[in-house]
């Protein structure tokens, strides 16, 4: 199966990347992520006093010789990651600058690359699309073949409607109670105050959350020169404006908006990254997760 979302060229570039969470995760398969349960790995964690029921072979006799007490060695266990990719498919994600993919398309490419990476390192990946309410949902799965299910979903996405990120996150919180990683891809232009409170709830559930803001360069540079009738892409009406007179103010407002968003998310323990649709995919991934295998 061939797809434009994930070309071999992209795979070659990202093959050397890996994704690690900075916290403990719960998983059913062995993987590269640390599990809070002590297991049989070679990495020593701590000594624990022997208790009835422990296997006799796990007693550290050298420690008994030193302390005259029965101690059991415990080792760090490694498990796989369960990750959710939440993708915004609202109307505003359909914007595309001249010669560039739409924000929707770029976010889908980013999703596909993330999926490949996670599945490649044995993690389970699920996807949740949303606009004003949750749409397509695929449960996390660690099988590599699951990649194609996700890509099929991503290929068929159409930007429409307004945005309500809290509804999508609520659904994830209801369906998935264990530890994991939530990657949210959106332009974040319609994030309201509820999003932060929802992020705090997920944080309490030990969910690690990453927000990726996908923006077109036009939104950051406002290159328009003549009188324009700006129409909203999410049914918020239209406005006639002369860009020459307000460009400076717009850039100021955009900068302030992005800074406020970053601060708010960081306060809520949410990682934040901003990518632009003219960046190469691997550059965006590096900006997100960094690190080399």
């Amino acid at each position: 199966m061939k797809t434009e979302l994930l070309s071999s060229e992209i795979i070659n570039k990202i093959a050397r990347l890996d994704i690690k969470t900075s916290c403990f995760v719960d998983g059913s398969l062995a993987g590269i992520h640390r599990n809070r349960h002590r297991g049989e790995s070679i990495e020593f964690a701590q000594h624990r006093e022997y208790a009835p029921g422990d296997e006799i072979r796990r007693i550290d006799w050298k420690a008994y010789a030193r302390n005259d007490r029965y101690c059991v060695k415990e080792f760090e266990d490694e498990t796989n990651l369960r990750a959710w990719l939440c993708l915004d498919q609202s109307g505003s994600m359909g914007y595309s600058g001249e010669g560039r993919p739409s924000k929707m398309r770029y976010a889908a490419q980013l999703c596909a690359a993330l999926c490949w990476l996670l599945l490649d390192q044995g993690d389970a990946v699920g996807i949740q699309c949303f606009d004003e309410r949750p749409r397509t949902f695929l449960a996390p799965c660690a099988q590599k073949a699951h990649l194609w299910n996700i890509i099929e979903v991503l290929e068929n996405l159409q930007p429409k409607g307004s945005t309500s990120v809290t509804a999508a996150l609520s659904q994830i919180a209801e369906r998935f109670s264990g530890r994991g990683l939530i990657v949210l891809l959106s332009d974040c232009l319609d994030f309201k105050g509820q999003f932060t409170s929802m992020a705090r709830i997920l944080r309490k559930q030990r969910q690690r959350m990453v927000v990726i803001q996908v923006l077109d360069p036009d939104e950051l540079t406002f290159p328009f020169q003549e009188l324009c009738l700006f129409e909203s892409m999410e049914n918020e009406g239209e406005i006639e404006a002369d860009p020459r007179g307000m460009k400076q103010q717009y850039l100021l407002e955009m900068k302030r908006f992005c800074d406020d968003l970053r601060l708010e998310l960081e306060d809520g323990g949410v990682d934040f990254a901003q990518v632009q649709t003219d960046w190469p995919i691997e550059q965006s991934l590096l900006a997100l997760f960094g690190g080399r295998r």
């Binding site: 994600m93 232009l189 328009f224 700006f230 909203s232 406005i239 006639e240 404006a241 007179g245 103010q249």
Partner: peptide, 24 residues
């Protein structure tokens, strides 16, 4: 003859115009 443009950040444009319209 204004140019018709579909744009996502309409709220920011509206906010900017509110502040600059008089001066402009």
């Amino acid at each position: 003859k204004p140019k018709h443009v579909r744009f996502p950040a309409i709220e920011l444009i509206r906010r900017s115009q509110r502040k600059t319209a008089h001066r402009f």
